[in-house]
Design a protein around this nucleic acid. Structure first.
Lengths: 149, 149
DNA sequence: AATATTCTTCCCACTTTTCCCCACTAAATT
DNA sequence: AATTTAGTGGGGAAAAGTGGGAAGAATATT
């Protein structure tokens, strides 16, 4: 299970090191390939198998006779990027995604159950409520489950 | 699995480079031949095997006694074009299809599970909703399965 | 029928990008 | 303090993408 957050630097080529703990878990359980998707102002990184489970498998059951379905598929797949760890355990964040998530010099990598989120450090701090005074937010009401991002 | 989108240039002869990642997947899994079909204002490119699975196999089971079926068949097969990669990994887009999909100088090639879509860049941006705010659409309701494009 | 014209296909050459690999520093472990 | 592991940076080879020339096929023109 993935958990916790780590600050890492983004180099001139747009690469970020995936913290060793995360990498071990991912490689062992899923292999070295992840799928990136811009969302909520950050980048979601799914292990490929996880992506398939959440999207491919469910979407392939839909008929593509309707234009709506075809459009949904291309909007999802078209925005995603596939990428692999290099030998140093880094991934290259495509320029497109770096721009849309405002990631420049420092990024925060967050482990959430079985996917990662990659944030610009500034945005992450905002998302966390700027001051981390140890005050936990209340839990939101339950919601209906439809689609798992 | 095919995923993500790449911008490529269309040369004076109407050729486009198929991004290496896509090509590797296609060649390894399916061979070098694809079937092109104009649809939704872009060009669909199916590996031949995929075309057979989606269309040939299912359509050949239908009886051709009705005019309706014969008409469907000729409209589908008549508009399709077969083509191969050249040594540089490009395909030549037939003039007809280039016109009907408004492809001129810049094209976007999108990988969607096991087929490609080839778009004029302008049209693609429209299809994506112009601004890429990372907002993914919800899935539409299920539909009855007829033919899967 | 002969010639011209367009289109297709193959090949070479150039530019840009990608990514592989080495090396350095910092931190943790023994 | 020495050794291992994690994270960071960058040079250079290889590959990807692009453009165009030239030979051959198909079509059109005189």
């Amino acid at each position: 299970m993935l958990i916790s957050s780590h600050t890492v630097s983004v180099d001139a080529k747009g690469r970020v090191s995936i913290p060793a703990r995360f990498r071990e878990f991912l490689s062992a359980k899923y292999g070295d390939q992840v799928v990136l998707l811009g969302k909520d102002g950050c980048i979601f990184a799914y292990p490929v198998e996880e992506w398939k489970r959440r999207f491919s498998e469910r979407l392939s059951k839909l008929s593509t006779t309707t234009k709506e379905v075809r459009r949904t598929l291309r909007r999802l797949y078209g925005r995603a990027e596939s990428c692999e760890f290099d030998r140093q355990g880094r991934i290259l964040l495509p320029a497109k995604l770096r721009v849309s998530s405002s990631i420049e010099k420092e990024a925060v990598i967050v482990g959430i159950e079985n996917k990662l989120e990659i944030w610009d450090k500034g945005r992450w701090n905002q998302e966390m409520g700027d001051v981390d005074d140890g005050t936990a937010d209340e839990l939101p009401d339950e919601d209906l489950i439809e689609f798992e991002f």
